[in-house]
């Protein structure tokens, strides 16, 4: 129950940050892909630089979870087609719908009911991937 409340609280923090910094805005995504604003690059860039220092520090200090478990930082297997082709498909959808898998839910919370269509599309895309994944190069 305590963990439920903690994750819920961190999620609320995430939803507020996403909304207040306009990451959930279709317009901001369009502007980003036209390279006409620093806003989105500044957000991702500063999050990555701070995240990088933080992860290095956590590994060095051996920071554990609140339950005393080691935090796994698992390396991913290197593959070009999987990440490049998958990434391109994702990018096409991100620019069209203007929302990635976090913001589509935050927008729903903001009261934009039409985002249900995007969420259903994303669930369908995930399902179809699961059906045909063994036929795709990974």
């Amino acid at each position: 129950m305590m963990n439920f409340i903690k994750f819920l609280f961190v999620g609320m923090m995430f939803g507020v940050i996403m909304t207040k910094s306009e990451i959930i805005s279709w317009y901001r995504i369009y502007e980003m892909f036209r390279l006409e604003s620093f806003h989105m690059f500044g957000i991702i860039g500063s999050a990555v630089i701070i995240g990088l220092l933080m992860v290095q520090w956590m590994k060095k200090q051996g920071v554990k979870t609140i339950d005393g478990e080691v935090i796994p930082f698992r390396p991913k297997d290197l593959s070009i087609p999987r990440y490049l082709v998958g990434g391109i498909i994702f990018g096409l959808g991100w620019a069209l719908a203007g929302a990635c898998p976090g913001p589509m839910f935050v927008l729903l919370g903001n009261g934009y009911i039409t985002l249900i269509i995007v969420v259903l599309g994303a669930l369908l895309g995930t399902f179809v991937y699961g059906l045909i994944r063994h036929r795709l190069p990974h």
Partner: peptide
């Protein structure tokens, strides 16, 4: 929107992650 959502869902799982 349904096509955009589909591409996001399919691409994210194929690439093993999103933004």
């Amino acid at each position: 929107l349904i096509v955009g959502g589909f591409l996001v869902g399919f691409g994210a799982r194929y690439a093993g992650g999103c933004t």
